[in-house]
Computed example of a mutant assay.
Amino acid sequence: MATKKKIITRDDIVSIYMNDVLEAGKRPASVFHFVKGKDFTEAEFYAFFGTLESLEKEIFRLFFVNTIDLLNKNTDYLEYDMKNKMLSFYFTFFEILTANRSYVLQTLKADLNPIKNLVQLTSLREAFKEYVAEILTDDYRLEQERFQKFQEKTIQESAWLQLMLTLKFWMSDASAGFEKTDIFIEKSVNASFELMNVAPMNHLLDFGKFLFKEKIYSR
């Protein structure tokens, strides 16, 4: 009796690709080279991914998705304020990266041009920015609505930059258990939320609004 062929899944391809990259010490030259000798075809690969590059982007996005899934399983997390949600995200995200450290280091250092390596993070970037917008609370939102959209984009981009700086620190961290990264996360997140204190900015905008009205109506 013929053995029924296993149906390949998206997760299967991701796992096989990561393992191949680690064992070969480099990326496959093409989809053809990647599927050669495997139990699935190019056609089956293309059912999930258009290119190897899109697969690489998906891997880093999945690190993010798995982080959010783990966070949402913790009922306490849903009650956290924005700062503690962000801290929880960082610690969980870097635990997942640590579990896949060999792959992350190899792929983010694969090309001499760092910009080409960072292209893999574009899907992660969009997902992370959406997450930041979702957890943004009124405590960190300006009162004047016309400035809120600009403020939200600024916070998203600043948060992404902070995540990239933390990633760079973690990649160079040689401390046991990456304890220095944990310290970096706590101090950097605390500092960033201090800078996000909108009370002084709201007062400044109110003062500016007052001066503008005085100038208009005093004519």
Results as ranks from 00 to 15, higher is better:
N72T: 08
K215M: 14
T137I: 08
E186F: 11
Y131G: 01
F60S: 03
Y90E: 10
F178R: 11
A99G: 09
N100A: 03
Q151M: 08
Q120W: 10
R141E: 13
R146G: 01
K73L: 14
S30Y: 05
T92F: 03
S218M: 10
K73V: 04
L62N: 11
L97P: 04
M18E: 15
I185N: 02
W170R: 04
Q151T: 02
E186N: 15
P114V: 03
H33C: 05
L52I: 12
L195G: 10
D206K: 15
T122V: 12
K109M: 09
K5V: 15
K116F: 13
E53N: 10
F207W: 13
I135G: 03
H33F: 07
Y217H: 11
T67Y: 00
P28I: 06
Q144D: 15
F64T: 05
L78P: 02
A43C: 05
A127V: 01
M1P: 11
F89Q: 05
I96A: 03
L70A: 10
F32H: 10
A29L: 09
L205I: 15
G37C: 10
I185E: 00
F210K: 15
E152N: 08
K4F: 12
S192T: 14
A43L: 04
Q156C: 12
F147P: 00
R101V: 07
K26W: 05
F64S: 07
E79W: 10
M18R: 09
T92P: 14
V189I: 14
M82V: 11
Y217D: 15
E53Q: 10
W170H: 01
S30A: 07
E214W: 06
T3W: 05
F178Y: 10
D69E: 08
K36Y: 13
I155Q: 03
N190S: 07
Y140P: 00
F212S: 15
K180G: 09
R125L: 01
I59P: 04
S218W: 11
N202Y: 02
W170S: 04
M171W: 01
D111T: 05
N66K: 07
D173M: 03
D39P: 02
R61P: 00
Y17E: 00
Y90G: 02
L78Y: 12
A133E: 09
I185G: 01
S88K: 00
F128A: 00
I59H: 06
F45C: 07
N72H: 14
L97M: 09
A159K: 00
I115N: 11
K6N: 13
T166A: 05
A133V: 12
S88H: 04
K109V: 01
A176F: 15
L161Q: 09
Q162N: 14
K187D: 13
L70N: 12
E157D: 14
L142E: 03
V35S: 05
I185C: 00
E179A: 12
S30N: 11
L22C: 14
D206T: 10
P28Q: 07
D173S: 05
G177I: 11
L55Y: 02
D138G: 12
V132C: 13
E44L: 02
D111I: 03
T75D: 08
E152W: 00
E53F: 11
I216Y: 13
L108V: 00
Q156Y: 14
F207P: 00
M196C: 08
L112H: 06
S218G: 03
K180D: 15
Y131H: 06
L118S: 10
D81F: 01
S172G: 08
F193E: 03
L136Y: 11
I135V: 13
I8M: 12
R125K: 12
T181Y: 04
